[in-house]
């Protein structure tokens, strides 16, 4: 009998909840850091450089950043593998559909799987674009402000980013509340507060992230 964390559906969902919350915490910090772009090139680039010196002299140059990267990579992989395995199981558990169709569940709930796939692909593009600068044509190493402006000066860069951020908002809207239920933190009394927190986080993160491309598009940041 499967009573282990990884062997049980309830346990695997716990893994998804915990890794999801780790990524959510990171996104809040990431979004707040992004907003520094509104204070100009020097401050944004200075902030980006400071991230590399974080923890010095206890940590070596860029070590703090690499620790965060390793934790995030582990979280993304565990979240994705759990989601894949649980989804396979769910689809197997309901092989034949009802003839009489009717709309089930909310839009955010129904798009969790496709939304997750979109976000996974986005992360790959995002890293190639602004971390390794592989697909960013006008990129210059060490000048993140100019690279962000270069990305959001292309129509496809904006389209990809805006789509992903809308998917992110929907994913968090259902995901945060679900994580609370999976970890046993929900209750009838706390339900409204949790749903409000989920919607608030989704809205704040989506608007915060989207403000950067919108600012570039409208010329506020250039």
């Amino acid at each position: 009998m499967t009573r282990t964390l990884w062997g049980s559906t309830v346990g695997k969902k716990t893994v998804m909840a915990v890794t999801g919350l780790i990524m959510l915490g990171y996104l809040v910090v990431h979004m707040l850091g992004n907003l520094k772009i509104f204070f100009g090139s020097d401050e944004f680039n200075g902030y980006a450089h400071w991230l590399r010196t974080l923890g010095e002299p206890f940590l070596h140059y860029e070590w703090a950043l690499w620790i965060v990267r390793v934790v995030l990579l582990a979280a993304v992989v565990l979240h994705g593998v759990s989601a894949y395995q649980l989804s396979r199981r769910d689809i197997r558990a309901r092989p034949s559909k009802y003839v009489h169709k009717r709309r089930r569940a909310s839009y955010a709930t129904r798009t969790m799987r496709w939304g997750g796939i979109i976000l996974g692909l986005f992360i790959v593009w995002h890293l190639l674009d602004l971390t390794t600068l592989t697909v960013n044509e006008n990129a210059q190493p060490g000048r993140p402000y100019e690279n962000v402006v270069a990305t959001f000066s292309t129509p496809y860069g904006n389209a990809v980013y805006l789509t992903a951020m809308l998917a992110l908002g929907l994913h968090i809207r259902h995901g945060f509340w679900s994580a609370a239920q999976t970890l046993g933190a929900g209750s009838v009394r706390r339900d409204r507060a949790l749903k409000t927190a989920a919607n608030g986080l989704a809205l704040v993160l989506t608007v915060g992230f989207i403000s950067v491309p919108v600012a570039v598009m409208t010329g506020v940041v250039s």
């Binding site: 559906t9 309830v10 969902k13 197997r92 558990a93 569940a105 709930t109 259902h174």
Partner: peptide
């Protein structure tokens, strides 16, 4: 062989 919960509330 039952599926897992995705909290759809159905």
């Amino acid at each position: 062989g039952f599926g897992g919960c995705t909290l759809t509330g159905e």
